[in-house]
Design a protein around this nucleic acid. Structure first.
Lengths: 202, 202
DNA sequence: CTACAATTTGAACCATGGTTCAAGTTTTGA
DNA sequence: TCAAAACTTGAACCATGGTTCAAATTGTAG
């Protein structure tokens, strides 16, 4: 029988929950390594050091694993937006903060996931909640940009287009970044956000 | 038997060549519409208005179709780089020109293809030539950026990183652009390249 | 016109990979 | 300690989709 999501705190529930996230993390790694389509259930199972069958004990199938990976990352990014809003700072500083968090969400081992870049991989039925979050995130970033323009801190620009350019640049980092390369993810986050915000300043 | 690429000009050869590109174009459309992995041979065949079997008369298989799509787009982009180099102009103007051509290569119906964004989809054996072109293109853009910095036209920056940011922003456009949306691909190319180059100026 | 080559078809083949399941093993509660 | 529940396994099932192929059609050369 497939388990129901459960945040209770009895011993078994905690252990069960841990196993679930363990699987999700393994899946994230495989997704990033092989790409969404090429990631097989057997490989995910091996990465998580369990048998293939068990994936269907904790999840209803590959789609659901994908769904959870995407939502986890998006919620992480939405939290970063909230954090930025809470801090009293210039639009430029806020925007840089959000973009840096986004880069970390893309590149860092712990929470990093690139799955949310391919919403189309989800069957129609599951897409809605992910797209809702994705759109909410994009709107929030756009609001940050528009706000900076309104305040006169940024030059006049097409906020929607610039936002998409920024997100594209940031998302793309997952394609070329190598953890064993010359620079850390923090350095990338720094330089990238500096450059992207600079294009907005007057 | 599988046909050999042939640019001769006898009547049959011309017709054969036309059929090949016709198939490639159909494949490009399906790739863009469904994504690489989800594009099936049967669907490509239907889009090209032929039977599935014939794809194997003109190509050795899906991999080769993919390979040709990628190379076609990359060659198109490399040509744009050459054109930019030939023109006497500021680094900023050259860079804008290249980025605009890139956007058009992404979005326009005629030659537009997004296949080259997923080199990993190719089997190891076929990857090399595509990656060589892709890297050559990236190096050329980077050289343009570095040149602008050296001339003092651009502010000091990590040329490699900025280049990747630009390419990411531009590649990403294929994800959100809708031909029937509010703006044309030319308008997008314009705004996008303006913003991206602005971040480099002093 | 006729034979040969080039082209085209669509059904069948088969590997891949997501999924199911009956049968074990481990953990829990009393 | 023991039975029930929770968990885990690995092999088998089966749909999908890339590929093959024998046969049919079309085009070409003599």
């Amino acid at each position: 029988m497939v388990q129901v999501l459960n945040r209770g705190s009895s011993r078994v529930q905690r252990r069960s929950e841990a196993r679930r996230t363990e699987i999700l993390r393994a899946a994230s790694r495989v997704f990033r390594r092989r790409g969404l389509a090429a990631a097989g259930m057997r490989e995910i199972a091996e990465e998580a050091d369990v048998s293939p069958g068990i994936l269907y004990y904790y999840f209803s199938g590959k789609d659901e694993i994908l769904l959870f990976c995407q939502e986890r990352t998006l919620e992480h990014m939405l939290a970063a937006i909230e954090a930025a809003r809470a801090v009293p700072a210039s639009s430029a500083e806020r925007l840089r903060g959000v973009l840096q968090a986004h880069v970390h969400a893309m590149l860092d081992e712990l929470e990093g996931a690139t799955a949310h870049l391919e919403v189309e991989a989800l069957p129609e039925a599951l897409r809605a909640p992910v797209m809702e979050k994705r759109d909410r995130y994009e709107r929030a970033v756009r609001a940050l940009v528009a706000d900076g323009i309104k305040r006169g801190e940024f030059a006049k620009a097409d906020a929607a287009l610039v936002t998409r350019a920024m997100l594209g640049a940031v998302n793309w980092s997952a394609r070329w970044f190598r953890p064993d390369g010359p620079q850390t993810s923090a350095a990338v986050a720094q330089s990238l956000s500096d450059y992207l915000v600079k294009g907005l300043l007057k």
